[in-house]
Amino acid sequence: MFLLISLKILKLHQELRDSRQNYPLMQNPVEMTTILLAYIFFSVYAGPRLMANRKPFHLKTAMIVYNLSMVLLNAYIVYEFMMSGWATTFTWRCDLIDTSSSPQTLRMIHVAWLFYFSKYIELLDTVFFVLRKKQNQITFLHVFHHSFMPWTWWWGITLTPAGGMGSFHAMVNAGVHVIMYFYYGLSAAGPRFQKYLWWKKYMTAIQLTQFILVSIHISQYYFMEKCDYQVPLWIHLIWIYGIFFFLLFSNFWIQAYIKGKRLPATEGPKQNGSASEAITVVANGKHFENGNAHHHTNGKVVLGKVKEI
């Protein structure tokens, strides 16, 4: 059965494959699926058990370098999306998939792949959690988001390598990640930078704004008199994704800021001299405290919670 499904997937890929999209991890879906399955296995099983009887690693320098590198990478991705259409020739309405081989189109294909590849780099978020024994931050949502995003984007840039209006959400997401990883970098730098993190509470608002912008932009498709976008399925999936995470964020906003039901702070060891704070979960599966939470020794991840054994 698995062999038949794999053969059908490979046949479908050969039919859809764009000759302009000749980048690593794009040759077939087997490679990326294998990597993501290995990531899930490591995150929820192998990693926690590997660290069960070991002391957590102190990765302050590595985390600062990683987070600031992600700031630069995502800023570059935003710039390339702008220069390959969004700030030059796009109408911001019914922008179709470009099937030409013009320099601008090839630039869009390149940045779309770079955005996709950045999702594999982001898997290091979870690796840091595992090595620092922050199992309670490896939630179901965190693992789902980090594995589902690159999997769906492989199909997205296979179907729509120069995606027109279907690439807007990627540009916005990269812009939000510039802000988020900058926050993470400051947080990882230690207590002397805490005074610069007063804007933490606005992160949820930034995330909500992201999904509002994406949902409004992609919803235009349903109200235009005519828009011959070549792969409507991609439009529908983006709309569903935007609405789903908007609702998730709205629920968090209501619980945290209207009803005042903030998640309680955990009592645990200090990191870099600062006491642990409450974990604020955001809808992309990340946490505002970049791992500054109490760790559970010999913990086991069960749908995002830690079970003592």
Rank of each mutant, 00 (worst) to 15 (best):
I5M: 11
I5K: 14
K8W: 07
K8N: 12
Q27N: 05
N28M: 01
P29Y: 04
P29H: 03
E31N: 05
M32R: 06
L36W: 09
L37V: 12
F42Y: 11
L50Q: 10
L50W: 14
M51T: 04
M51D: 04
K55S: 13
P56A: 06
F57S: 11
L59I: 02
A62C: 10
M63T: 05
V65I: 06
M70F: 03
V71H: 00
L73R: 01
N74A: 01
V78S: 03
E80K: 05
E80N: 10
S84V: 07
W86P: 13
T89N: 15
F90E: 14
W92D: 15
R93H: 06
S100I: 05
S100L: 03
R107S: 09
H110P: 05
L114R: 05
F115V: 07
Y116V: 01
Y120A: 08
I121V: 10
I121K: 07
F128P: 06
F129R: 00
R132S: 11
Q135S: 12
T139V: 09
H145R: 06
H146M: 07
M149H: 03
W151F: 13
W153T: 05
G156C: 04
I157Q: 05
T158R: 00
T158D: 01
L159I: 06
A162V: 00
M165Y: 10
S167T: 14
A170K: 04
A170Y: 07
I179W: 02
I179A: 09
F182R: 05
Y183N: 04
F193R: 07
K195S: 11
L197V: 10
K201N: 11
Y202G: 00
M203I: 08
T204N: 01
T204W: 08
A205T: 12
I206A: 12
Q207S: 10
L208S: 00
L208K: 02
L208I: 07
I212G: 06
S215I: 04
H217G: 00
K226Y: 13
L237D: 01
I238N: 07
G242H: 05
F244K: 08
F245S: 13
F245Q: 15
K259Q: 13
G260M: 15
K261I: 15
K261H: 12
L263F: 12
P264C: 03
A265S: 14
Q271T: 12
T280N: 08
V282N: 09
A283H: 14
F288K: 04
E289Q: 08
N290T: 06
G291F: 06
K307Q: 15
